[in-house]
Design a protein around this nucleic acid. Structure first.
Lengths: 243, 243
DNA sequence: CGCTGGGTTGACACTCTTCAAATTTCGTGG
DNA sequence: CCACGAAATTTGAAGAGTGTCAACCCAGCG
């Protein structure tokens, strides 16, 4: 058993015995990666996908001046670049945040799965659609919320996702981001991320220091963030169709 | 032949004869829809998906005060809510923009396709991944560009997509949005969308009136928007893996 | 022990929003 | 064909929210 977490956590419960075996059989190697290591670069053809076993990673795009916009944050269990299998190329870079442990899944093995296992294929498809749902939520976040709401929303989402894989201790969780990273995820500057965090702290909503986050008042934070976790398909609520 | 355009246009060339037949066989009905008609509503279980044959549609989410954020704009050929097949429920609303002609595809028929046609299934999957790529581009747009760049980017993207399905006449194309709609797609107010449009017009970049858009200086507009169409998989450049 | 990268704070400029009003366009019924 | 009302567009003025620049602090680490 290489990893206890597959498919963004949420899909895990839906995996059947032989699905897990098929996925594990597709893993060609497992290795540890240092912080800030580039896992994949925009435009380069990819021949394998990466399953994040431990640690965190993010995906981002740079603008012309090199300023970065995160488009996703990944937590353990995420199939970081599964879409690279069908897309053949990524439209963004991927980098680890803290140290991470990753499993490499060969695309040939994925191709075999899509030929022979319609149900598992659907589950993989669902996994990529869940990414798309998070993208939409990020669009909403950036388009309609102010800096405080954006940061709050990010904390809510990450906490909810970590909770699904047992990595949130009652609202306390690791999140190895700098304040600049946080800004790059929220479409604000690092300086303003700092001020926003101070506001949230003074309001008694969250604390965040040294890559350690804690949500102090989940209800008020979620209200500020206009956050409803249902789009994460976290168990109760919505469920995918697999048959 | 119900429709000449399938799968976001770009995937069209990749469809084989029997794929087209299978898709057409999955269509249960075709009908015309008036402007601003709700095609699907957030949270309601969906049992069919919608193929946009003619006209435009958009997907959006509302914040608490009812202010709207568009998360996608759809052009003819788009499989608007294909993700609803696997997700079972949509996390957003869908509404037509002008009058539209749509085909309804039953989910049972899609299920049969995923059981029996791995290649076509992969193509459908790819289609949803293309949506995700556009979502990422929108995240970048909202997070890193100012109002002028955001509007410019939207025009560039829509024009590129319409060109792929033969609906752009050298940079002139229909786009039945109000200025408020445009603002809701760009995370700005309608008033500011108006001022931004005036700037772009005075710069000789675009014109936009009565749902009719024209790109006057594509090179400068793309530069302002930091736009590179490669993520749309428009033919030359990147291509999906289907085998 | 000095360097370095992150965090913190202040002052000021600029972008965008808000509110309000005037103007134009469009659809509809007379 | 015109008149009318509703919706969309346009413009102005004032204010809130962020960005920018610069300085300083702090901890970890060579």
């Amino acid at each position: 058993m290489i990893t206890k977490r597959f498919l963004l956590g949420r899909g895990r419960d839906l995996l059947e015995q032989d699905d897990v075996a098929a996925l594990e059989g597709a893993v060609t190697s497992v290795h540890d990666v240092p912080p800030r290591a580039v896992l994949s670069r925009r435009g380069e053809p990819v021949h394998s996908s990466t399953l994040l076993i431990e640690g965190f990673a993010c995906r981002y795009m740079d603008d012309r001046e090199g300023r970065r916009q995160l488009v996703a944050i990944h937590v353990p269990g995420d199939f970081i670049d599964l879409h690279g299998f069908t897309m053949r190329v990524l439209d963004h870079d991927i980098v680890t945040l803290g140290t991470a442990r990753v499993a490499t899944v060969d695309h040939e093995a994925l191709a075999a799965i899509t030929e022979n296992r319609p149900r598992l294929t659907r589950l993989l498809w669902f996994s990529t659609l869940l990414e798309a749902a998070m993208h939409r939520e990020w669009i909403f976040r950036l388009g309609r919320l102010g800096a405080d709401g954006r940061v709050a929303h990010l904390f809510c989402e990450v906490e909810a996702r970590l909770a699904m894989v047992g990595l949130s201790d009652g609202g306390r969780f690791l999140l190895p981001l700098t304040q600049s990273d946080l800004g790059e995820a929220c479409g604000i500057t690092g300086v303003h991320a700092n001020r926003t965090l101070r506001c949230l702290r003074e309001e008694g909503l969250v604390t965040f220091a040294n890559g350690q986050a804690a949500i102090l008042d989940h209800a008020r934070l979620a209200r500020l963030a206009e956050f409803d976790p249902i789009y994460l398909y976290g168990g109760s609520g919505w469920a995918p169709r697999l048959d």
